[in-house]
């Protein structure tokens, strides 16, 4: 699946690099000094690369943990995010990563211990608070887990810092590392959903809705706390029928008691990312809808989305109490 691997010289002998490389024995290997030499040049076409992305193994030097943008969170404070990986093996047409990066290659930072140290440091500095750490901001947290083993590493870390919370945000069903571990009360595995028909049309490579629900059921049965992320919510013809069916399917199969949180968010994207993606996919109807600019973000026109939001909110609240429902604003 990975045909080319770029390797930073400084981590070429790292045991994790060697382990990952071993998984792709036929891949072409190319040495580089810094991952940015490969990943950052502007003269790249994200869409063309997405058909055959390479893997870049690198070392991250700073900024392991960053504050989340305002409006991101599920009730706790303060909120941070971290990304051991840039880009995603899935291909959701609405994904902002397409606009953020010039390259579709997957970057994996192999120095997990440095992420862990900074997380522990933040948690200790804020002993009297309950900081949240969100994984899966610049990638999908679990989709590449069989290759990286990153979340497995982080579960050990979070088992030692009970005041800190970890959200593992995903659309993947790669949950083996969780099923093989003792559930942690400070970890939430949050699955993102859009309705079946929408997902099939705009979320390429993402496991089917039913498979994701089954993964959530398995996790709940084992004692893991799960979350639901309905984000982005985009109104479309017949969304009422599709969202009603989605909610029915999810909430009737899951144990509502151990659902940690549910969040809803609309389609929003920094203007410059939107412009870049529209150039990459000029034929994509999503990027040719009427949009509004709000605080530097392109959003679907508020009036059109408001009805859908209200409709979905009402549906969700028929299954869970309002205290568990959060909104991701701009």
């Amino acid at each position: 699946m990975v045909a080319t691997i770029y390797i930073e010289g400084q981590i070429a002998d790292h045991p994790r690099t060697e382990d990952i490389i071993r998984r792709f024995p036929k891949a072409e290997r190319i040495m580089c000094e810094r991952y940015s030499q490969v990943f950052n040049p502007k003269a790249q076409n994200f869409r063309a690369q997405k058909q055959n992305p390479a893997l870049i193994l690198a070392k991250k030097h700073k900024g392991f943990v960053l504050p989340t943008p305002p409006g991101y969170g599920v009730g706790g404070q303060p909120n941070y995010y971290f990304s051991h990986m840039l880009n995603c093996i899935y291909d959701c047409r609405y994904c902002f990563l397409q606009g953020m990066y010039s390259s579709a290659h997957y970057v994996v930072f192999v120095n997990y211990e440095d992420f862990a140290s900074e997380i522990i440091e933040y948690a200790e500095q804020q002993k009297d608070e309950s900081p949240w750490f969100f994984s899966g901001y610049d990638c999908d947290s679990l989709a590449f887990e069989p290759v990286t083993g990153f979340i497995n590493h982080m579960l050990n870390v979070f088992s030692e810092i009970p005041n800190a919370h970890l959200e593992i945000r995903t659309k993947s069903t790669q949950i083996r590392c969780l099923l093989n571990s003792k559930p942690l009360s400070n970890v939430v595995v949050a699955f993102s959903f859009t309705p079946d028909d929408f997902s099939r049309r705009l979320e390429f490579g993402v496991p089917a809705v039913d498979k994701r629900i089954m993964a959530m059921q398995q996790l709940q049965q084992q004692g893991w706390s799960v979350g639901l992320r309905f984000d982005p919510m985009i109104s479309y013809h017949n969304y009422q029928h599709s969202y009603r069916a989605l909610f029915e399917k999810i909430f009737s199969r899951l144990d509502s008691e151990t659902i940690h949180s549910v969040s809803m968010g609309g389609f929003r994207m920094p203007k410059n990312f939107f412009k870049k993606i529209k150039k990459l996919y000029p034929e994509e109807p999503l990027y040719n809808l009427a949009m509004e600019d709000i605080q530097g973000m392109r959003c679907l026109s508020v009036s059109a989305e408001q009805d859908m939001f209200e409709f979905c909110k009402k549906q969700i609240l028929s299954w869970i109490p309002e205290t568990k429902l959060y909104y991701c604003d701009i």
Binding site: A3, T4, Y6, E28, I30, M31, C32, E33, Q37, V38, P41, Q44, A48, Q49, Q51, N52, A54, S103
Partner: peptide, 27 residues
């Protein structure tokens, strides 16, 4: 698959998106 200018050491990495026709690659 990689070029290095010997006088400046600047490297450029051409991107291969072709899976079906295999031509061995080298820097």
């Amino acid at each position: 698959n990689k070029t290095i200018d010997s006088s400046t050491s600047k490297a450029i990495f051409p991107v291969n998106v072709i899976r079906t026709v295999s031509i061995s690659a080298a820097p």
